[in-house]
Amino acid sequence: MSWPVTTQPQAMLVSSKEADWSSGICGCCDDMKQCCFAFWCCPCFACITTRDFGQCLCLPLLDVFSCCIPPVAMSMRAAVRQRYGIRGSLCRDCVCSTFCLPCVWCQMSTEMKKRKIPTMLSDIISCR
């Protein structure tokens, strides 16, 4: 049985020049409203940020099942870096996601707001 194609694949927007994050990992306090939301309700903030990036709204809830390193936060940070051409490494993504989780989500959200690149549903997981 074949499934009909309902949406066509979109070109992925990736920056060709490598740059730094527009805000540091501790720059989450620059926007106090966002900072408080991420600190007091990190799961909700993470879900909204993930949705804005074009992924499944509930994807960050899978981090609840990890014992040490939050795999979704780490992979989202790596994906944001890749999409926007930001310098960094998977090792740094792992360390930041493990020890500064609300700050990592704030940093990703700030980056997406500053870049204002349209989002798209992509990859394997998508919510309908």
Rank of each mutant, 00 (worst) to 15 (best):
P4S: 06
T119G: 06
P118Q: 10
V5D: 06
C103T: 11
C29T: 08
C103K: 01
T6S: 14
V64R: 14
C47M: 14
V104S: 00
V95Q: 06
G27A: 13
S97C: 02
T49W: 00
S23K: 13
M12R: 11
E111G: 00
V95R: 04
D63E: 04
G88E: 08
Q8F: 07
T50W: 01
W105A: 00
P71Y: 11
D123S: 13
A78H: 10
C68F: 11
A78D: 09
C91A: 11
E111R: 02
L62E: 01
Q82F: 15
P4V: 12
C58W: 14
A46L: 07
C106I: 05
W3R: 10
S66A: 15
V72A: 02
P118F: 06
P9T: 01
W3H: 10
G88Q: 07
S22H: 12
L101N: 09
A38K: 02
S75D: 11
R115C: 05
F37H: 03
F65C: 12
S109H: 10
V5A: 03
C28G: 11
K116R: 12
V14R: 08
F53M: 15
S109D: 07
P118C: 01
L101P: 01
S122G: 15
T119W: 06
Y84W: 14
R51S: 14
P4G: 05
F37D: 11
F99C: 04
S15Y: 06
L90G: 05
A19I: 15
M12F: 10
D63N: 09
F37T: 04
T7K: 12
F99D: 00
G54Q: 06
C41S: 07
W40I: 13
Q8A: 14
L62P: 01
A46D: 01
T49I: 08
Q55C: 10
D52I: 05
L61S: 08
K114Q: 14
L121S: 09
S122T: 14
M32V: 12
D20K: 15
S75L: 10
S66M: 12
K33T: 10
C94A: 08
I48S: 12
Q107A: 02
I124L: 14
T119R: 09
C44R: 05
